[in-house]
Amino acid sequence: MTRAFTFPGQGSQTVGMGRELAENMPVAAQVFEEVDDALSEHLSRVMFEGPQEDLTLTHNAQPALMAVSIAVIRVLEKDFDVPLATAAAYVAGHSLGEYSALTAAGALTLSDAAKLLRLRGEAMQRAVPVGEGAMAAILGLEMADVEAVVKEAVQDGEVCTAANDNANGQVVISGTKAAVERAIPLAKEKGAMKGVLLPVSAPFHCALMQPAAEEMEAALKETAIQAPVVPVIANVTAAPENDPEVIRRLLVEQVTGRVRWRESVLKMAELGVDSFVEAGAGKVLTGLVRRIDRSLTGLSLQTPTDIEAFATSLKS
C-alpha cells in the first residue's frame, strides 16, 4: 500500500476542532500554543469555543485549520513513532492546506506557516471589496463545459473562472459577482444539476486576487523554505515538487490560480498511491477521493482514537 497524506482547506472548520487532541495529547496542545504565540493571540480559544462566525473569518480559519492538521501529524510522529517520511510517499493540501502539507513535510516551520496564513487570509479579504466578488459551486458539469460557461458569462472586463476542480462534476467558479451570477443559469442550460452561490467573503483563486498574490510574494521572499521530506503535489501544477524556490513561486501563483485537486489525486494515483489519509478537521477530501476514483481508499484522522488506530494498523 502506498499512501499520501492530504490536508483540508477552508470550509472544513468547526467550533471544537482540535479540542479533544489538545485535552488528551500534550504534543497537540503544544502545537496550538505555538500557533497562538506566533499570532500573538488566543486563536485556539476561538477554535475550541467559538463563536463560529469568528472561526469562519478567513484570517482565522486558515491558520486554525493548519494548526489542527499539524497537531495530528505531530501526535502521530511523536506519540506513536510514525514519521511522515515513512508513512507517506506524497503530501498534498487543498488551497490553504498546501501550507499544512508543506509544514507537515518540514518545508515550513509551524510559526512561519501560521503567520503566512494569517497574512494570506487578510490579503485575500483586502483584495476585493465585500460584495463585488462571488464564488459558486457548479455540480454535474465537467471542466470543459464549465470553462465554456465562464467564458460566455463575462462582460466588459469582468472576471469569471473555474477556480477549484474538486472532483468529477464538482467545479467551483470565482470572479466578479455579476458574472458568477450570470454563469449559474448558463450552466444549468448546459445540463448542470445545480449551481449555488457559496457563503464566502471573497472570490478566491481568480485574477481578482492579484493584490493578495503580490502581498504573499513579498512575504514569501522573506520566509525560509526547506526541501520537503516527501514531495508535495502542488495545487497549480498537480505535479510533485521538491525544490524550495519552485515551491515559493507556486505558492504565489496559487493565490490567483486554479486548485487542481481532481488532477492532483489522479496524478498521485498514477504515481502508485492507492490510500489517502486526511489529517485534520473534517472528511471533505476523503469524500472527494472516492468521488474521483472509487478504487482508491480514504481515511480521516481527527481524534486521538483515529490516530492510535491508524498507527496500530501500520505496525500489525
Score class of each variant (00 low, 15 high):
Arg120His: 07
Ala162Tyr: 09
Gln254Thr: 03
Ala311Cys: 14
Leu43Ser: 09
Gly93Ala: 06
Met209Cys: 13
Met66Pro: 06
Ala29Phe: 08
Ser95Cys: 11
Val35His: 10
Ala219Pro: 04
His205Ile: 07
Lys315Ala: 13
Arg182Val: 12
Glu23Ile: 07
Lys190His: 10
Ala148Ser: 12
Gly18Cys: 11
Thr161Leu: 08
Val146Met: 13
Pro26Ala: 05
Lys194Ala: 10
Ala213Asp: 08
Met143Cys: 07
Leu266Thr: 00
Gln155Trp: 02
Glu53Ala: 12
Glu23Ala: 15
Gln52Arg: 06
Asp112Ile: 10
Ser12Gln: 12
Gly195Thr: 14
Gln170Asp: 11
Ala101Gln: 07
Val68Asp: 04
Ile173Phe: 10
Gln125Tyr: 02
Val68Lys: 00
Gln10Gly: 09
Ala311Leu: 04
Ala163Arg: 02
Val265Trp: 00
Ala192Tyr: 02
Ile292Leu: 11
Gly133Thr: 15
Ala144Glu: 14
Gly140Met: 11
Glu132Cys: 07
Arg74Ile: 03
Ala227Gln: 15
Arg126Glu: 12
Thr237Met: 08
Ser316Glu: 10
Leu117Ile: 09
Val128Leu: 09
Leu251Arg: 03
Gln170Leu: 14
Ser201Thr: 15
Ala179Val: 08
Ile173Gln: 12
Met209Trp: 13
Leu117Trp: 04
Ala239Thr: 11
Val277Gly: 00
Leu43Thr: 09
Val128Pro: 09
Leu116Glu: 07
Glu263Val: 05
Gln62His: 00
Met25Pro: 01
Asp37Met: 05
Ala162Asn: 09
Leu139Gln: 13
Leu299Ala: 03
Gly9Tyr: 02
Asn235Pro: 06
Val15Gly: 12
Leu251Asn: 03
Ile292Thr: 15
Val289Glu: 00
Leu314Asn: 01
Glu49Leu: 07
Lys283Phe: 01
Ser100Gln: 12
Phe48Cys: 05
Thr103Cys: 14
Ser313Phe: 01
Asn166Asp: 04
Ala136Pro: 09
Ala192Val: 04
Pro199Arg: 14
Glu41Tyr: 06
Gln254Phe: 03
Ala218Gln: 15
Met209His: 06
Phe5Glu: 00
Ala178Gly: 10
Thr237Phe: 06
Ile225Tyr: 07
Leu84Gly: 09
Glu217Gly: 15
Tyr90His: 07
Val171Ile: 15
Val146Asn: 12
Gln210Thr: 14
Glu41Trp: 05
Thr14Pro: 01
Arg74Asp: 05
Pro8Ile: 08
Ala179Asp: 07
Leu84Met: 07
Ala183Arg: 14
Ala162Glu: 06
Gly18Trp: 04
Ala22Val: 08
Ser12Phe: 10
Ile225Met: 13
Leu76Lys: 01
Pro244Ile: 05
Ala105Glu: 01
Leu251Phe: 08
Cys206Asn: 13
Val82His: 00
Ala87Tyr: 00
Pro244Lys: 04
Lys188Asn: 05
Lys188Trp: 04
Glu214Gln: 13
Ser40Gly: 04
